[in-house]
């Protein structure tokens, strides 16, 4: 007999509830994978150590993409590193987030006219938060992280879903720039 008082939740609602609970855990325990490509990476040590102490936000460094939740792209990306970045990003377990550091990842920064460096990171992988500056302040970095947490709470950190939905678009951009993402050449066979 169906209860008249409580209408049972639909499967969708239940999933949504679980997702919200999960979001609480996810935003309070962001494990980072640091892809230290450029000079912005120098902002991470003060952020991690006693000056700003990101562990109080529940963040910490992790060793491999499988374990990590958030990918930090710290600075300019040459074509060679971009391949590895995409490979690494695809290995992360879902849900996954990306934080881009510095003007290099936003629009190319001072390397905007280099032949070897890409300009806009979000054409290749979805970026949830950008931290602007060349290089950004550590305060800005910390602010970026709290922003990401807020976005997770508001369910607006949807980059990984976007990567699934518009996968063709991302793949096309990647191929346009790189030719081939996973290279097969004599060094890799």
């Amino acid at each position: 007999m169906k209860s008249t008082k409580f209408s049972p939740m639909t499967q969708e609602q239940i999933d949504k509830k679980w997702w919200e609970i999960g979001n609480y855990f996810r935003r309070n325990s962001l494990w980072m994978l640091m892809y230290c490509t450029g000079c912005c990476a120098i902002e991470l040590p003060p952020a991690m150590t006693s000056a700003y102490d990101m562990e109080r936000l529940g963040m910490g460094p992790m060793a491999t993409p499988r374990q990590a939740d958030v990918l930090l792209v710290t600075g300019y990306l040459s074509l060679k590193t971009l391949r590895r970045l995409i490979y690494t990003y695809e290995q992360m377990s879902e849900p996954k987030y990306v934080v881009g550091f510095g003007s290099c990842t936003i629009n190319g920064g001072i390397y905007h006219d280099s032949h070897a460096v890409i300009n806009k990171l979000d054409q290749y992988i979805p970026v949830d938060v950008y931290v602007a500056g060349c290089m950004p302040n550590t305060e800005a970095v910390m602010n970026g992280f709290t922003d990401l947490m807020g976005m997770i709470k508001n369910k607006t950190a949807r980059g990984w879903l976007d990567y699934k939905e518009r996968n063709d678009w991302y793949k096309k951009n990647q191929l346009d720039s790189l030719g081939e993402v996973l290279v097969h050449d004599e060094f890799h066979e």
Binding site: T88, Q91, S93, V183
Partner: peptide, 18 residues
């Protein structure tokens, strides 16, 4: 879990097919 092959494994970003 999502099934992946044995070769799809952490290689520090390197491409290895052997």
């Amino acid at each position: 879990s999502k099934k992946v092959t044995l070769m799809d494994t952490y290689t520090a970003g390197e491409f290895i097919y052997t």
